[in-house]
């Protein structure tokens, strides 16, 4: 099975982290993974997005015209990528920053107040991990324990507190749906 995601937001929202963690968890489970970042003039405060694929088979093209899943963390990303979700695909919307609703009837939309949920978990900065939790639950691209390991490894350097906030954020997202 091949699970594909485009995640988009502004620089600093951690969309690249979402992509890299998804790839890392897949590789941990001996799956194939591909992560393709695309920075606008990100360094100068623009938008950034990445495409991630997790698959049981070797991965072909890293370029997609229509996406199985799209995650929009801010309004410009929603406006830009809403139309690129495949029919029957899923659109994950950070409703904390996007007050629009999608008009599309042929896709499933999941509205997640991720910033509020992240603050609840201990830090606004963990909103990306909340979104990742929701996405993990609905697509099951990896086991939750595997993602917890990834969070421990990648955030370990930043200390126990950061790890536990992000684990809580993952939980909150996972249990949201």
């Amino acid at each position: 099975m091949e699970i594909e995601l485009l995640a988009a937001g502004f620089g600093g929202q951690g969309v690249m982290v979402i992509g890299q963690f998804m790839a890392a968890a897949s590789v941990k489970e001996n799956k194939y993974a591909l992560f393709y970042p695309s920075y606008g003039p990100a360094m100068r405060g623009g938008t950034a997005n990445c495409t991630v694929v997790s698959s049981d088979e070797p991965i072909g093209s890293p370029i997609f015209t229509a996406h199985q899943n799209v995650m929009a963390l801010n309004l410009p990303s929603f406006d830009k990528f809403e139309s690129t979700v495949q029919p029957n695909g899923k659109l994950f919307i950070n409703s904390s920053l996007i007050d629009k609703k999608s008009d599309r009837k042929d896709i499933e939309c999941i509205y997640v107040p991720s910033n509020e949920m992240a603050i609840e978990a201990g830090s606004n900065l963990a909103a990306n991990i909340v979104m990742l939790g929701v996405f993990l639950k609905l697509t099951q691209f990896a086991k939750k324990e595997t993602m917890e390991q990834v969070i421990q490894e990648k955030f370990g350097r930043k200390g126990e507190k950061i790890v536990s906030i992000n684990l809580k954020a993952l939980d909150a997202g996972y249990n949201f749906v």
């Binding site: 890299q20 790839a23 590789v27 194939y32 993974a33 591909l34 992560f35 393709y36 890293p62």
Partner: peptide, 9 residues
């Protein structure tokens, strides 16, 4: 540039 920037195992 694509092969330079992507991540794979």
């Amino acid at each position: 540039g694509l092969l330079g920037q992507i991540m794979e195992a």
